[in-house]
Simulated scan of single mutants.
Amino acid sequence: MSTHERRRTLLRTARDVAEDLATDAIVRDQAGRPPVDEAARLREAGLLAALTPPLPGGGTDWRTACAVIREVAAADSSLGEVLARHYTLTWSGRFYTWHHGASDLEEATVREQWLWAGAVRTPGPAHEAGGPDLTLTPLDTGYVLNGRRLVDTAVTVADQFLVDAVCAVTGDVLVIRIPAGAPGVIAEPADDRLGQRVAGAGAVVMDGVVVTSRQVVGHRPQDEESTAPFTALAEPALRLALCHVGLGIAEGALAEARDLGSSARFAGPAGDDPDLLLTYGELASATQTAAAVVERATDAMALALSTGAELDPEDPAAVDVLVATAETVTARAALHITTRVLELGDAVGLDRFWRNARTLTAHHPAAHRLRAIGDHYLSGQGRATARAITRP
């Protein structure tokens, strides 16, 4: 199968899965249960193994994976976020090391159909100000892991967790893989979330978990200055994937409002009302504008990822600025569109789009990103600007 045919097949599968998820999206959102059945749907459709780096007979490119995220997110943004974080984590072997273990990890992900969850923090002192939340104590043949880490998706249904932890002896920060069923791993689901209720957020507790040397994926640098250019793409790659989730929310909300336009439950007039046409023209334009900005950032990220270890040291900062711009535009569009949709009508379930957009963007205020974008525009600074983008 050619690359083009593989892309078409994968996008067709994503549309089929999205249509399936859309049929009971409101009911599942109201229930707010962990995504056990939903993860099974993604696995059975083959979507979990989609973004392993392209290999003979399998894998796809970054642009296609982002299109899959966006398609699924338009139907159910919780599952879009599950895929976004899972896809980024499947690249961790490439981001944090270039030895043969990266390929082994990718092959195991495909073979076992693993669903990944977890969080690898951004280098720098901000997160460690109160001490590390996960600590490794060396043993003769490995480590013992203790602590607690907040996880945004799939905490009770993941097959593998990927986290960074600080070695209590050396101070090195290691990126490690922890099987979800390992002794001492305790998942704590979060209840009563405002939005993204089916994403499966929560925390994972590591209570004396034994970590072998084979579970060490690589090293996370201590600061930005010592971060290899390709490793520096890990954090903006995740943020870009989440931009596609936000874009999917905006598109899904607008499409559902349009489809409900002829329903008696929907308050807005149908047909040729000029005010309604003006409103939909404005909202559709906002969606298309956000899509154009996100696609530009996606193209830049895809090019940088395809360059691999030969990436120029200045390239990650340039990509980071494009991602920050996409985040800003998409967050504003998603919040605006989902709010206006609620004003247009009073149909059951429309509120989930606003709640999901609010939850997805709440912890990433736009002000510091805009300052960093302005700094980059005025001064053209590299890594310093990238640091400002990723932190308030």
Rank of each mutant, 00 (worst) to 15 (best):
R7W: 00
L10I: 06
L11M: 11
A14T: 07
A22K: 15
A25I: 01
Q30H: 14
A31G: 01
P34A: 04
V36G: 04
E38M: 07
A39S: 15
R43I: 06
L48M: 14
A50E: 05
P56S: 04
G59P: 08
T60H: 11
D61S: 10
W62P: 01
T64M: 06
A65C: 12
I69P: 14
V72D: 10
D76K: 07
S77H: 10
L79D: 06
E81Q: 15
E81G: 01
E81C: 12
A84S: 09
H86Y: 10
T88E: 15
W91Q: 08
G101T: 02
G101N: 12
A102M: 10
S103F: 02
S103Y: 07
E106K: 01
G118K: 02
G118M: 07
V120E: 09
V120I: 15
T122Y: 12
P123S: 07
A126T: 14
A129Y: 06
P132E: 12
T137H: 10
P138Q: 06
L139A: 05
L139G: 06
G142P: 06
Y143M: 03
L150H: 07
L150I: 04
A154T: 11
T156Q: 11
V163T: 01
D164N: 14
C167T: 13
A168K: 09
T170P: 07
G171L: 08
D172M: 01
V173P: 00
L174C: 09
V175R: 09
R177P: 00
I178H: 03
G181Q: 14
P183C: 08
D191R: 14
D191P: 00
R197L: 04
V204C: 05
V205G: 00
M206L: 15
V210S: 14
V211M: 03
T212E: 09
T212Q: 09
D223L: 05
E224P: 01
T231G: 12
A232T: 03
L238S: 07
R239G: 11
R239E: 11
A241W: 00
A241Y: 01
V245L: 13
I249R: 11
L254W: 02
E256T: 08
E256I: 00
R258Q: 07
S263H: 13
A264M: 09
F266A: 12
A270R: 15
P274W: 09
P274K: 09
D275I: 12
Y280I: 03
G281D: 13
E282H: 01
E295V: 11
A297Y: 14
A297M: 10
T307K: 13
G308S: 11
E314L: 04
V323I: 12
A324I: 02
E327P: 00
T328N: 05
V329M: 04
T339W: 03
T339Y: 03
D346V: 08
V348C: 06
L350Y: 02
W354R: 13
R355D: 15
N356D: 15
A357K: 01
R358G: 00
P365Q: 08
I373P: 03
L378K: 05
G380R: 08
T385E: 06
R387E: 14
I389T: 07
P392M: 07
